[in-house]
Amino acid sequence: MGMLLRECKIEVIRIFRNPYFIFWSLLMPIIFYVIFTKVVNTGMENQALWNAIFLMSIAAFSVMGSAIMTLGIRMVQEKSEGWTTLLRVTPLPASSYFIAKMIGQSAVHVFSIIIIFFAGFLINGVTMPFGEWLLCGLWILLGSAPFLAMGLLVGTMKKVDTASGVSNIFYLLLAITGGLWMPMEILPKLIQTIGMWLPAFHYGNGAWAIVQGESPELKNVLILGMYLILFMILSIYIRRKQEVV
């Protein structure tokens, strides 16, 4: 247990020391937030509600990205540089490596969520009952599980370049089709239909519901859970196949 805890701590330290993380996971989403709530006139009837909803979109966007990319690309990098091989001859159990990566990443997500929520408060004076803040934060944190699993899947790739290219494309496509950049309603019908079956929309939708005083739909939980299982099985299957050499 002590070993795992130390491993998590190390992962957290390493993520924070990575300047790309700060830029892509914190700065970019906040800049986005300013642009779409302050600069561009979105013509929303209820500006205060839009500010809160879009804050959730942007927090989900940030966490989703760091789950897929930071986790996945880092794993590919460690594998291609031989570090993972060296770990295999140490007493560190292989599972600890993966678990520590996911827990460490989640700990960093807590930090990202707090910063982004706070930015929303400072920039647009977004307020809501403490319970709702907390629920939103928890939803975004726990709902990121399928994206962490997707990160593990990206982590099975052989080259850093491929991994970062592929994960970037998937990340942006998911974010757009999931309504994290602009509301689902203004997207073309076809994309809406496809987006309804992808995980990003359901991830955002849970938090949007909480902001409006409702609770996430069962469908949101089910679809996220389904993708979690799918990505886990895929990444375990691929990893098994790769190990037998």
Partner: peptide
Amino acid sequence: LQQVSLMDAL
């Protein structure tokens, strides 16, 4: 091992 780079950012 041959050609192992170390864990970065540490």
